[in-house]
Amino acid sequence: MDTIFGPLYTAVSWIIVQFHKLYSLVFDEDSGWAWGLSIVSLVIVLRIALIPLFVKQIKATRNMQALQPRMKKIQERYKNDRQRQSEEMMKLYKETGTNPLSSCLPILAQSPFFLALYQVLNKIAMGREVGVLDQGLVDSARNAHIFGAPIAARFMDSADKVEALGATLVNVRVVTVIMILLMSASQFYTQRQLMTKNVDLTVKTPFMQQQKMLMYVFPIIFAVFGINFPVGVLVYWLTTNVWTLGQQMYIIKRNPTPGSLAYKQRQEKLRAKGKLKEDPAEVETKKAVETARANRQQPRRMTKAQRQAAAAQAEAKQAEAEAEANEARTEAGAETEKAAGQKPSMTKETPEGGRPARTGQQSKKKPGQRKGSQRPKHPSKK
C-alpha cells in the first residue's frame, strides 16, 4: 500500500508542512493550533480544487431527479425483465447525457486524500517518518494536542498508548465523542437541508426515498467508523462536512432546484423587491380570478311569496318575448310577400257570418285551372 499511495503521502504531508510553517509564525510550532489549522487548511485546498466536480454533482443530482418519473415507468413496464430494464435505463442515460455516478464524484475524489491523511497520522502516532515529514516534525506533530487530545490518538486506544502521547484517556474520549457528534450532526443537517429545501416536491419518486434513507444512514456510519479515526482525521472530516454544508447553503440560496421550497422562497423575495418580471399570462389569470371572486354574490334566501312573484315575473317576461318574436315573424312574412310582387287580394266587405264575395272578373275560372289553386304569375313571364 505504501508503494501505491506513496505519492499521495508525499503530497498530503507537503501541504501540511507548508501550512505548519505559516501558522508557526503565530502559534507555537509544537502546539495543536499550528498542526490542527494545517489540517483544516489542507481540507480547504482540496475542496477548492473539487469545486468543478461539485458543480457536476449538482447538475447530475438535478438530472436524476428530473428522470425519476421516466425511470419509474421503465421499471414498471419491464419489471419482469431485468435485462431489458437495464438496457432501457442505459438508453435513457445516454439520450439525456446523465451519469448516475456523477453525484458521487466529490466523495470519490476525496477518498484517496482521506486515506493518505489517515495513514500519515497513523505513522505519526507510531513515530515513523512519512512523506516530507522528518523525525523532528513527526515528534512535533505527535505531541501536538487539540483541546487536550493528541491529534494521533483514537477513541479506542488503550490508556497506556494515550499516556505515551502525553494525554489522559478521559480527555481523548471526551474530545473524540464531541467531534463525532458534531461530524454526524453536520452530515445529517446537510442531507436534511437538501431534502426539505432543494427537492422538487411536486414529483414523488423513489429517488426522494433513497435520499431520505441516506439522511439517517450516513450519520450512523460516521458515528460507527469515527471511533476508529485519529483526532486529526476527525478534524479533517468535520471541516469537510462544514464546508459542504456552507457550500450547499450558498447553492440553494443562489440557484435552487425549480419546484422546490427554496425556489418558491427565492421567487417571493425577488417579487417583493421588484426584480422578478411575472409572466403576462399569469398576471391576467390572477386578475380574472380576483375579479370573479369580487363579483361573485352568495344566493339569498327567499320566502315562498317572493319565489312565486319571481316565477310570475319570469313567465311574464317570457310571454312578452314570445309575443315580440311572433310580431317580428309576421312583419318579416309581409315584407317577403311584398318583395315577391304578390298583390293583395281584392275582397268585398264580408257579410256577417259569411265568406267574402269575389268580383265577377276574379270569380271566373280559366280553362284547365283548378279551384283554389290560382297562383300569381311571375313578373318575368307574359
Rank of each mutant, 00 (worst) to 15 (best):
A334G: 10
L42G: 01
A319F: 03
Q308D: 05
R254P: 01
Q248G: 06
A357I: 12
E322Y: 02
I124K: 04
I16G: 10
A288Q: 15
Q369S: 11
G131L: 09
G274E: 13
V235W: 03
N80P: 01
L245Q: 06
A60W: 03
T330V: 14
D28C: 00
N122C: 01
A334L: 09
P7S: 09
L182K: 00
F147D: 10
E320C: 01
T347P: 00
A309R: 15
T10Q: 08
E129L: 04
F19E: 02
P299V: 08
H20F: 11
W35K: 03
P112H: 06
P258Q: 10
S38N: 07
K72A: 12
R375M: 09
D134H: 08
L115H: 04
Q297M: 15
A49R: 02
I58Q: 14
D81T: 05
Q75N: 11
W237P: 05
T303Y: 04
Y236D: 04
W14R: 12
K253Y: 09
L8N: 07
E95V: 07
S41D: 09
K123Q: 12
M126C: 00
L46E: 01
A310Q: 09
R355I: 14
A292H: 00
V242P: 01
P230F: 06
K273C: 02
Y250V: 14
P106R: 07
G226I: 04
A281M: 05
E278P: 00
Y263H: 14
K381M: 08
K204T: 13
E268C: 02
Q247F: 05
I227L: 11
I44K: 00
D2N: 11
S102H: 05
I4F: 11
I15Y: 05
G226H: 03
I221W: 11
K371N: 09
N171R: 09
S363I: 03
E320S: 09
I252V: 11
D157S: 08
M179C: 10
T244R: 02
D2Q: 14
R300E: 13
Q369K: 15
Q297P: 02
T96I: 05
E335M: 07
V235N: 01
R154M: 13
N99P: 02
